[in-house]
């Protein structure tokens, strides 16, 4: 079985082929960006195919959106990136909202995508119905893909403690990478005097033919080339810049193609940040934390679920039931 987020799972081609030599320029893939997640796993969703587990996705937050990433919508916390094309095609962006009620100790699932199908066991769940309470081993069908829900016996306070420990390690304003709903370890500290550019490795102007007009590489930046393939796909080479402007931290988009989000709302120009804000670059989420901010808190803000998106692509067939929803998986195209 593959591990959750492709963790430690390098494509075999990368051990056979020197991609830098083929590109003609070097990409810097920081191994720290693929270090093991530092927050405990609260639950997991195990993706099934013919009843067999084929992939697993960690849940490391108590308030997370599940689904696919579509660039016109905001990123989701748990991005099902190991699906096949037709499975992704029937998944909402976002598809569902999963949260943990500390008092009752319950996991609740809301559907937020009216055009995509959701079933818990054999019961259909729609966006008009109240949240369903999940129990251990529940079979959840999102679109046409089945998952097994597995909560772990871990108290939320342990997760909060780990998040706190990571945040209190920050010596000044810092950007933390989030994965699966929790701060995962990699972070970058901000400097008052230097704007920080977020992006990916790219060749110097003129290094490739007809590229003299390309911008020079930035001096201070966080190179995110080392993220997992499915994360870096939607990160531009120069994606966004974070600057201290008139004594406020701000983020401004640099890319015309890839979107930048603040608190899951796309931005088109410079936007001021507050400690605790969530920045999204393509499908990847970061948490901005500034210990000097008077309102700084180590707690997370509750998820602001987007107004139900009438998301659709193609026309889902009517009268679908979970058993029909299983397509013929024997013709799997990819490895």
């Amino acid at each position: 079985m593959k591990t959750g987020q492709n963790e430690g799972c390098l494509n075999p081609i990368e051990s056979l082929v020197d991609l830098d030599a083929m590109r003609g320029w070097e990409e810097y893939r920081d191994p720290a960006l693929q270090a093991p997640h530092r927050s405990p796993e609260l639950a997991e969703l195990v993706q099934l195919q013919h009843g067999d587990p084929v992939a697993r996705y960690s849940i490391r937050g108590t308030d997370v959106l599940l689904g696919r990433f579509q660039s016109q919508y905001a990123p989701v916390d748990v991005h099902f990136h190991q699906l096949q094309d037709h499975q992704t095609y029937r998944l909402g962006a976002p598809h569902a909202h999963l949260r943990y009620e500390d008092e009752e100790g319950d996991w609740l699932l809301d559907v937020v995508s009216p055009r995509a199908h959701t079933f818990i066991a054999q019961r259909s769940l729609t966006h008009l119905q109240p949240a369903a309470v999940l129990s251990d081993g529940d079979l959840i069908t999102l679109g046409v893909t089945k998952f097994r829900f597995r909560p772990h016996d871990i108290s939320n306070s342990r997760r909060l403690k780990s998040q706190k420990a990571q945040l209190s390690g920050a010596d000044g304003p810092t950007l933390f990478l989030k994965r699966s709903g929790g701060i995962c370890g990699p972070h970058c500290q901000l400097d008052k005097d230097q704007p920080l550019v977020l992006g990916r490795s790219f060749p110097a102007p003129g290094q490739l033919p007809n590229t003299d007009h390309w911008p020079p590489r930035d001096l201070v930046w966080w190179d995110l080339s080392g993220l997992y393939d499915f994360e870096r796909r939607f990160i531009a080479f120069r994606h966004a810049v974070i600057t201290l402007y008139k004594d406020r931290w701000t983020v401004a988009p640099l890319s015309a193609r890839q979107r930048t989000f603040v608190n899951r709302i796309a931005i088109s120009g410079r936007v001021a940040l507050q400690s605790g804000d969530e920045i999204g670059l393509g499908s990847v989420l970061f948490r901005f934390y500034d210990p000097d901010d008077a309102d700084a808190t180590e707690e997370e803000r509750p998820q602001h679920v987007p107004a139900v998106v009438d998301w659709s692509e193609g026309h889902p067939p009517s009268n679908i039931t979970p058993s029909d929803a299983t397509p013929d998986e024997s013709t799997t195209e990819n490895e």
């Binding site: 081609i13 056979l16 082929v17 590109r23 490739l208 007009h213 390309w214 531009a236 080479f237 015309a256």
Partner: peptide
């Protein structure tokens, strides 16, 4: 020994080159 691995690597590098072009001359 691995012609398909190299062919796919060619496509990958090509894909990245197109993405660069789209980023810097959108």
């Amino acid at each position: 020994a691995h012609p398909t691995a190299f062919a796919r690597a060619v496509a990958r590098v090509t894909s990245q080159r197109l993405a660069l072009e789209g980023c810097f001359a959108p």
